[in-house]
Write a protein that binds this DNA or RNA. Structure first.
Length: 354
DNA sequence: GACACGTGGGG
DNA sequence: TCCCCAAGTGT
């Protein structure tokens, strides 16, 4: 594995440093996220927050703005909190022991082992999706890989195989193999350094592993959203609660359609429920579909003007009046960004159909 | 143990 | 077009 890795490893920015902080940031960004997606975020994030102290001192809104579009935003909130913990409790040094690093928000078994092995050369094997897939195939693990029992078995295997002299490289070799060769579909066994010892390959059953339960169908919701303008053509935006879906991001007010109400009625109701104001001159603006991690939505956006007011903020959900240009200063979810793109498009290139 | 939690690429 | 799923963690 180490020979294969030395020959085939890809160039990655976080492989050019031994700074534990940078390695930690990269591992948080890489959770459930592809390497090619992370690259640009990694550079911009570390330019803005070059040290753990800089991150600890930053505003939460600023941190989220640099995470905008990357998803799983609890990662950014937890990383921010953990940076403050490292500064306050560890003198600004990323912990180098398992007990201490596991105390950091957002650092679980995978990230702890990854940072300790890569940044501090400690002998801890990682068990991520790649390693799970590689080991499940090599050893033809015939149990549900999502159970804690199987996870224990796979972790034991990984730790047995770990090279104690180069634990970080061994871990990255396993993940790199999973990403480039031992892929979920149509693995490239002809190019695999393990093909001679792989039980699944021997049986021709590579794609049967890892064994996972069938996925449930994902639910769908219809969401109404209001683009509420004031008399100065500023827009009403609102910050989402700190926890939960898209926590801490800004958005246009709105919510789920209820019962048999029309989408426009849902829009008016939600704007009144969330901000205590009504809308006039309401007209359909744009409709789009979007998929979150565990459900899908159709977003029905309406444009209108403030009918009464002023708005009143809910607890933990402040609002702002902003111009279209100022929207770029705030972190929005992707679906809202698509609405903003449409606003700008109609501003810039007025269509015959407007 | 089960479920919440984003987004974009690839088949 | 739709589904899978990716360097997982928190509750």
């Amino acid at each position: 594995m180490l020979d294969w890795y030395d020959t085939h490893k890809r160039s990655m920015p976080w492989r050019e440093t031994d700074d534990p902080y940078r390695i930690w940031v990269s591992e948080i960004m890489l959770q459930q996220t592809r390497v090619d997606t992370v690259r640009d975020y990694y550079h911009r994030f570390l330019e803005a927050f070059p040290t753990v102290e800089a991150l600890a001192d930053a505003d939460r809104d600023t941190v989220l703005k640099h995470w905008e579009g990357l998803g799983f935003y609890a990662r950014a909130r937890h990383l921010h909190t953990a940076a403050q913990h490292v500064v306050d409790e560890h003198d600004g040094t990323v912990p180098s022991t398992m007990d201490a690093i596991k105390d950091l928000k957002g650092v679980g078994p995978y990230t702890a082992a990854a940072v300790l092995s890569i940044a501090y050369r400690k002998p801890h094997a990682v068990l991520d999706g790649n390693v799970t897939r590689v080991l499940s195939r090599v050893f033809a693990v015939d149990e549900d890989a999502t159970t804690s029992a199987a996870e224990g078995h796979l972790r034991d295997l990984a730790n047995e195989l770990l090279d104690p002299d180069r634990p970080g490289d061994f871990n990255q070799a396993m993940m790199e193999l999973g990403a480039l060769v031992c892929t979920p579909r149509t693995p490239h066994c002809d190019r695999c350094p393990l093909n001679a010892v792989c039980r699944a390959h021997d049986a021709g059953t590579e794609e049967d592993y890892p064994i996972t339960p069938e996925s449930e169908p994902v639910p769908h919701e219809d969401i109404a959203v209001g683009l509420v303008f004031d008399d100065n053509d500023r827009l009403l935006i609102q910050r989402r609660p700190d926890e939960g879906l898209l926590g801490g991001l800004w958005e246009f007010p709105g919510g789920k359609q209820e019962g048999d109400e029309s989408m426009e009625a849902a829009c008016r109701r939600e704007v009144r429920e969330e901000l205590g104001v009504g809308m006039t001159d309401v007209e359909p603006f744009y409709t789009l579909s979007h998929a979150y991690s565990h459900f899908k939505i159709t977003l029905h956006a309406f444009r209108g003007r403030l009918a009464d007011g002023p708005p009143e903020a809910r607890e933990d959900q402040p609002f702002r009046w902003v111009t279209v240009d100022e929207l770029d200063d705030y972190a929005f979810p992707r679906a809202n960004r698509r609405l903003i793109e449409e606003l700008v498009r109609r501003q810039t290139e007025p269509s015959l159909f407007d």
